[in-house]
Design a binder for these strands. Structure first.
Length: 585
RNA sequence: GGUGUGGUAGUUCAGCUGGUUAGAAUGCCGCCCUGUCACGGCGGAGGUCGUGGGUUCGAGCCCCAUCCACACCGCCA
């Protein structure tokens, strides 16, 4: 037996017992005739004591231990004369009588501490060392708890976990596929699933009326802090349900997760906002509702007063930042610089302060009368001490998006985006389609299997762009944590949908024939949702990047710097697969 | 595909307007230290300034190219 106890569990109730511990040397402190060693494992840190007085030879051996050596010790649990209130085992220490080095260690390239000196790059290269740090370990523990709670909850609701294949066929629409060559079928390729969407729909046809799966999805698109080429979804689908049923069930699940993982009881129903309102009032389909600062449309108030920028704008919108009138000229200039950054791309920003006496001082005073500015104040519902920020532009939705960036930046600057506060909502009534300039056709906004709202079905033939879908996203703190839809179960409607999306009947049959054929044999009405596990965990853990809750993540360019993948393969492998590689120009 | 920021000791960073031998902290090594817990004290080793080119009497610093990392835009049903 390598150990009788872990390094995190011994306390004063164990005083006097003889124990065996094993773990890593966190740190040694040599005091001359006495040496302290902090022994670490997954569960905690226990202090070991070696003394010249009791065993000089053993103490000498302890002095030769280096960081991250793996050792095993035996000794007596004793009460400390100087206790350490900062750690759970701080009241005891082990008077060691036996020491065995199981393996030595090279000096690690960075310190294995909460406050490590290692940069991102280095920590990724030595991820197995990074994972020894309690910060990263705790994130993985949270992830584990979350998957356990998801399974417990969905099982209690009658859901069956069914695995679907990773090697499937490539589908058009949506993200780029990762493809896998087939040796037995030369020149042919599998694709890794972007999501098990069509497979779970087939399971509904099979009668598995409540399915879920915690499953990897793969998308070959450019990455971000909250995007990995492979990520995990909690994928769910139900039969004989309407949107309301799906929303209710998964809202309950979200509340269950908040309660069990964060101890937060969310009693109120999550607010619901139409996609249209989300865009109109927040400039985003995933608004951060931890703070107000709702958009106010100001064309009526500010147009026609001789200020050309506004007079010619298609859209004028403002936000009111409470208590921000104290902003200095320099801070305001920085905000203007912020919105002019190429990523945001605005031309500028108009600001107006509401002074203590209620008067309004703006950057466009020469175009507007005092009365007009008072009118602005009323429209914005602004009070003394508030700062009004106004943007305008030719394209309403583009300007809204820019104003959204400004709103979020103001939220950051004013400390309104508290990571321990959670604002959940459903965004509903998404448009069915969006226009793609690149493809020069309508594209499914969610996916081609999404059911249009019943009342909008007639519009499919007259004004498809206006059709709304039975699609919904759950948004928390400005993060899309999940989304889904009611699916089409009528083969005729599905065929019509493919037609609008520009598929010929032959092409639709070729790409999605398996699904349309299945629907010929009695498809139940069904719908579902997929939650992004990585995003949930990082939200609960307060992380800025989902990488910190993934054991072995990829970097910005999709590389695994530890394994050095992707990499070229042997010519022999290429030959077997009948593949030829081409130099990129 | 694009924009921005960064790359200097094992690590995290500083390095002024281009000017002597490139610094700090931490880690590492050695010596001292019997109640430390981020122990402390003294000493030491450690550098292709990402790479290639250019400007200059002289480049860590300026210019061009390139590679890598990070953040973002496009993209991600």
């Amino acid at each position: 037996m390598y150990r009788t106890n872990t390094c995190g569990e011994l306390n004063r109730t164990n005083i006097g017992s003889h124990v065996t511990l094993a773990g890593w040397v966190q740190r040694t402190r040599k005091m001359g005739g006495m040496t302290f060693v902090d022994l670490r494992d997954r569960y905690g840190i226990t202090q070991l004591v070696f003394s010249d007085n009791t065993n000089a030879q053993l103490c000498e051996e302890a002095n030769r231990l280096g960081r991250e050596f793996v050792i095993q010790i035996e000794g007596i649990v004793s009460e400390r004369s100087n206790k350490n209130a900062n750690i759970l085992t701080g009241e005891i220490e082990i008077i060691v009588d036996k020491l065995r080095t199981l393996t030595s260690s090279e000096v690690p390239p960075f310190t294995i501490e909460d406050d490590t000196d290692g940069g991102d790059d280095l920590r990724m290269k030595y991820r197995y060392l990074d994972l020894r740090r309690s910060f990263v370990r705790k994130n993985l523990e949270l992830r584990h708890k979350m998957t356990m709670e998801v399974r417990r909850y969905l099982d209690s609701q009658g859901f069956l976990e069914v695995e679907t294949p990773m090697l499937i066929g490539s589908t058009p629409e949506g993200a780029r596929d990762f493809v896998v060559p087939s040796r037995m079928n030369p020149g042919q390729f599998y694709a890794l699933p972007q999501s098990p969407q069509t497979l779970k729909q087939l399971l509904m046809v099979s009668g598995f009326d409540r399915y879920f799966q915690i499953v990897k999805c793969f998308r070959d698109e450019d990455l971000r802090a909250d995007r990995q080429p492979e990520f995990t979804q909690i994928d769910c689908e139900m039969s004989f349900v309407e949107q309301e049923d799906v929303i209710n069930l998964f809202e309950s699940m979200a509340k269950h997760l908040f309660k069990t993982l964060r101890g937060i009881e969310l009693k109120e129903a999550f607010p619901r906002m139409t996609w249209h309102d989300a865009i109109k009032y927040y400039g985003s389909d995933k608004p951060d509702l931890r703070f107000e600062m709702k958009f106010v449309e100001l064309a009526q108030v500010l147009k026609g007063c001789g200020f050309g920028v506004f007079d010619n704008a298609a859209y004028i919108g403002g936000i009111c930042a409470q208590n921000a009138a104290v902003y200095t000229r320099k801070q305001l200039d920085n905000l203007i610089e912020f919105v002019k950054k190429p990523q945001i791309g605005a031309n500028g920003l108009v600001y107006a302060r509401v002074e203590a006496d209620g008067s309004v001082k703006s950057s466009v005073d020469k175009f507007y009368t005092k009365d007009k500015l008072q009118e602005l104040k009323v429209a914005m519902n602004a009070n003394p001490g508030d700062l009004i920020l106004i943007m305008s532009g030719d394209n309403a939705n583009k300007t809204r998006k820019q104003l959204c960036e400004l709103r979020l930046e103001m939220g950051n600057q004013l400390g309104l985006r508290n990571k321990n506060k959670f604002a959940c909502l459903w965004v509903i009534d998404f448009p069915m389609f969006e226009w793609s300039d690149e493809e020069n056709r309508l594209m499914a906004m969610h996916h081609p299997f999404t059911h249009p709202k019943d009342e909008d079905i007639p519009l499919l033939d007259t004004n498809a762009a206006e059709v709304r879908a039975d699609a919904y996203d759950m948004v928390i703190n400005g993060v899309e944590v999940g989304g889904g839809s009611i699916r089409i179960h009528d083969p005729k409607l599905q065929a019509r949908m493919f037609e609008i999306l520009g598929f010929t009947p032959e092409k639709a049959q070729e790409q999605f024939g398996f699904l349309m054929n299945a629907f010929k044999f009695g498809a139940p009405p069904h719908g579902g949702l997929a939650y992004g596990l990585d995003r949930w965990v990082s939200l609960f853990a307060g992380l800025d990047s989902i990488r910190d809750c993934i054991a072995f993540p990829k970097n910005n360019s999709g590389r695994d710097v530890m394994l050095d993948a992707p990499a070229p393969i042997e010519q022999k492998q290429l030959d077997e697969l009948c593949l030829q590689t081409k130099q990129k120009e």
